[in-house]
């Protein structure tokens, strides 16, 4: 176990834990946006940045490992300022009106923007950067959030749903988490199943994934009493 100081609060955590986990243990909340444990932990949004005390260095708490006697500040002026600009940068490439978004404003991005005083409107920045619109708004299974982004794909620019041509970020374990995410967005399970089948067909674990999906679909149908 190592001792870490988070905003002056001392906590003992496992040596391989992240600052975010240590903060949770200390009872402090650090905002996150792109952090989906088990699905996507790549520190891309930089909303969870914290300052290493005394160095002025800002680091993403979701992946940065703790070390003994590490001291961090999670909510000073510099940290808040960086978070605000990060949110602004995300918004700059996010041109969806909340009215047409299935989440109807009940989203984390909007919540954080309000908290950090960012004005504007709020999901997958990549497609929008290339002038596409968000497919989740049409309740279609855009696989953007779980695939390696940055593709400038022709399909997206033509308004077709992303079939994950870059491949999934992780294999098997992503599936369960991802399904939850899409269903939460209002995408039908059949749609998710069909999309996953398309882009996982070249995966070595294809049969397992399809089986897992079918089971999930069965469960869901059962729950809905169909």
């Amino acid at each position: 176990m190592v001792k870490v100081l988070i905003d002056g609060v001392e906590v003992e955590v496992e040596p391989n834990s992240t600052i975010l986990e240590a903060a949770e243990k200390a009872g402090l909340k650090i905002p996150t946006l792109c952090y989906f444990p088990g699905l996507f932990v790549e520190a891309t949004c930089r909303v969870c940045v914290v300052e290493l005390s005394g160095t002025g260095r800002l680091v993403p708490s979701c992946v940065f490992p703790v070390s003994d006697r590490l001291s961090v500040e999670t909510d000073n002026v510099r940290v808040r300022e960086a978070r605000r600009i990060a949110l602004e940068a995300i918004l700059a490439t996010h041109r969806i009106a909340c009215q047409s978004c299935p989440r109807k404003g009940a989203c984390k991005l909007l919540e954080l923007c309000r908290e950090y005083g960012v004005e504007g409107i709020p999901v997958c920045a990549e497609c929008l950067l290339y002038g596409g619109d968000c497919l989740l708004t049409r309740e279609e299974a855009c696989l953007g959030p779980i695939t390696n982004a940055g593709c400038d794909g022709v399909c997206l620019r033509e308004g077709k749903p992303c079939v994950g041509c870059r491949g999934p970020i992780v294999s098997r374990d992503t599936v369960r988490e991802a399904v939850k995410l899409y269903v939460g967005y209002g995408v039908s399970l059949d749609m998710v199943l069909s999309r996953f089948s398309v882009y996982n067909s070249s995966q070595p674990d294809y049969c397992r994934i399809v089986k897992l999906l079918s089971n999930l679909a069965e469960e869901e149908r059962h729950n809905q009493g169909v």
Partner: peptide, 14 residues
């Protein structure tokens, strides 16, 4: 920019 993190990807565009 490789496009991974927001500050570099969007920041440089801004």
């Amino acid at each position: 920019s490789c496009g991974k993190c927001i500050p570099c990807r969007v920041g440089s565009k801004i």
